[in-house]
Design a protein around this nucleic acid. Sequence first.
DNA 1: AATTTTCTGTTTTTT
DNA 2: ACAGAAAATT
Length: 708
Amino acid sequence: MIHYQNDLNDQQLLALQKMDGPHLVLAGAGSGKTRVVIYRILYMLEQNIPDSHICALTFTNKAAGEMKERLYHLSNQYILVSTFHALGAKILRESIHELGFDPNFVIFDDKESERLIKACMKEKKIDEKHLSLKKIIFAISEAKNTMVAPQDYLIEEKEDELIQQVYALYQERLKKYNGVDFDDLLYLPNVLFQEHKDILEQYQQRWRYLLIDEYQDTNHAQYLLARQLISQTHNLFVVGDPDQSIYSWRGADISNILSFEKDYPGACVIRLEQNYRSTQNILNAANFLIQENASRYEKTLWSGLGEGEKVTMHAVLTDRDEANFILERVQFRHRAQIPYKHMCVFYRTNAQSRALEDACIDHGVPYVLIGAISFYARMEIKDVLAYLRLLVNEDDFPSFQRVVKSFKLGVGPTTLEKFQALFNQSNMSLIALITAVLKEPQTFSIRLNETQKRGLNHLLSTIQKLKTLLNEKLVSEIIQETIIETNYLNILRQDPETFEDRKDNLDALIARALDFESNQTISLQSFLNDISLNMTTEEHETDTNKVHLMTLHNGKGLEFQVVFIAGLEEDLLPHINAKLEDNDLEEERRLCYVGMTRAKEHLYLTYCKRRFLWGGFRSMTPSRFLSEIPQQYIQSPQTLRKLSASFELPKEPTFAFQENDQVMHKEFGLGRIESVYEGSFGTMYDVYFEHLGSIKTLVAKFAPLTKT
DNA sequence: AATTTTCTGTTTTTT
DNA sequence: ACAGAAAATT
Ligand SMILES: Nc1ncnc2c1ncn2[C@@H]1O[C@H](COP(=O)(O)OP(=O)(O)OP(=O)(O)O)[C@@H](O)[C@H]1O
C-alpha cells in the first residue's frame, strides 16, 4: 500500500491529480522530480491503466534500471522504462524492414562509425587536411539530430557539398552493411513514423502514456519522437530543470522544455520548491553559483534539512596531493560510519581519474569507476564481438574486416578492398559472396593464395558451425566456443605482456553473458544489442560498497552523502574549450551546479596549483566558480589528527612565471617559458631562448628573469 | 602483399 | 602514458 500523502508534498500531489493531458514539472535539483514520475506511474496502475500502456524514458541506462527496479519493488509489475536510444532500437528491431533494413541490424558504436565515415571520405577523395574528419562526424550527427536527410542537407558553403556527399555515402554504406549508428536510433524511428502513419498508429495504441525524466537534455530528434508517439492523446508528462542542462554539445536543446506550454496547449505546469536532498549550506552555495548565469529562468529552492556543514574548500599543490587529500577525507568519513558507497568523487575529464584511482589503491579504499574507457572498447572484446556479430548479421563488412585482421586469416588490406568493391556492387550477402569466391574463383577477379583460402574457409565453416549452435546453446557457451574454435587465446599469447589481462577480460565477457542469462533466456542478438546500448556502465558493481568515481556528466540524477569535486581550476572547470562562448561557459557553471547538488551532507571542492595535464605540468589558477560562492557558506578543512599535513599554500608564490610567458634573461636575452616544475632546488623553469636556439633549465630562485 | 616494429600525436563531456 | 598510423621487415 502506498501512502501518497505521506511520501509526497502538496505540490508533488498536484502532479497526480489528472492522468490525462500534457504536464510539465519544472523544478530545481533534489526537489523530488524523479520521485513524482515514479509515484505517478504507481498511481496510474491503481487507476487501472494497463501497465503495457505506459512508457517511461530516462537519460541513462542506469537511471532506467533503477526506476524499473523501484517500480517493480513498489507495484510488483514490470513497466517499460528505457532510454530514448533503447526505445528507438526496440522500435527499429520490430519495424525497420519498412525502411529496407533487415531486422538483424547491428548497432555501430562511435569508433566504428568514425571508421566508416573515414572510409567514405577516402572514397570521395576528400583530404583530411582540407576538411577534418571531426568536422564531418559532427556535421552528420547534427544533421541526424535535427532530422535532416542527406538529400535535404543545406549547402551554404563550399565544404557543405562535400559533407553532403559523405553523409549520403555513409548512409548508403550503413544500409548495405545492415548497420545503424547511435543517432540513427532516434533518426530512423522518426523517419519511419513520418513515412508510415499506419505503423505510427500501432505504437500510439501501444503506449498511450509517456513520461520523460531530464527533459531539459532532449535533442530535437528525441523531442520529435515523443511528439509523434503522443500526438493523439497528448498524455505526456515531462520533468526537468533548465539549470541542469549539460548536454547541449550533443544537440540537447533547452528550448524543448521552455516551449513545452506552447507545443502542448493547456499543459498543466507544476513547480516544486522544496529540496529534500541537501542541507542549507550546500544548497545555498549551489544556488548562489547558478545565479551567476545571465540567461536563466529564476526558480525558488529551499531546504528544510537544517544548516548542516559548510562547503569545504581546499587548495593543494599537485593533483597527487589533491587525490591524497580526498582519500584521507574518505577514510575519515568512513571511520565516522559512512559507507563507501555513499561517497562520490566527481571530476570534469576522464583523464583525472588516474590520480584518484592510484590514491584509492594506495589507501586501500575500494572504488568503482563509472563510465570511463569502456570494457567493451578493449581490443580483445571487440575482436570476439565482431566474430559474434557475423553470426547475426551476414552483411557486417566492418566486422569481417576486423575479424580477418585480428584472427590473422592471412588476408590484408589490398585483398579486403577488392572484397569490399565486389560486395558493394553485389546483391548477395557478404557471407554468401565469400563462399562464392572460394567455390568459383574463376568467376571473380580476386586471386587468393593457399593461406588465404585456408583462412577464409575456416572462417566460413566456423560461422556455419556456431550458427547451428545458436538455437541450442546459451550465449555464454557460444562465446566460449568462438574463442576455442578460432584458437584466439593462442593469438593473444603472442604478446605475453598483455596476455593475462586480456584473458581475464574475455572471462569477464563470458561472466557478463552468464549474468544476463541468469534471469531470462536471451538470444545472441539481444545480447549484442544490449551491449551496444550499454557501452560504458558495468552496472553490477554499482550497488556494492565502493567509493564512486565519475565525471560530472555521469552524476545526473544521483545523490551521495559525501561529494568531492576535484579540479576546480580555470581551464579544467570551466574547461579551456568551453570558455570562448558565453553559452558554453554557462553550461560549465551548470555542470558545477549539478555536481554540488548531488551532495546530501558533506561537500568538498578542491583545486591545485600544478597539475599533470596534456602531457606536461601546468600551473593552474583557481576556478572562477569558487569565487562565485559566498564566503559565508565556505570553510577550510579541519585538521584531522594523525594525517600527513595537507599543504599550506605559500603566501608568496614560489614561482612567478607560467608556461608560455615571454621573459628577458640578463645573459641569454629574450625567451619563452616552456615548462614550470618542482625540482630539488625548488621551482625550475625550462626556458627556450631565441638567441641560443635551445632550451635552458633554470632555478627559479636564482634566475635573473624579468617578464616582458 | 602481409605482418611486425617504430613513431607520432594526443586529451571534454556520452547515448 | 597509449592507441593508431607510417615504416621496416618477412
Ligand atoms: N516529498 C518528499 N518527502 C521526502 N523526501 C522526498 C520527497 N520527494 C523527494 N524526496 C527525496 O529527495 C531526494 C531527491 O529526489 P529526486 O531524486 O526525486 O529529485 P530530483 O528532482 O529528481 O533531483 P535531480 O533533479 O537533482 O535529479 C530523494 O532522496 C528523494 O527520495
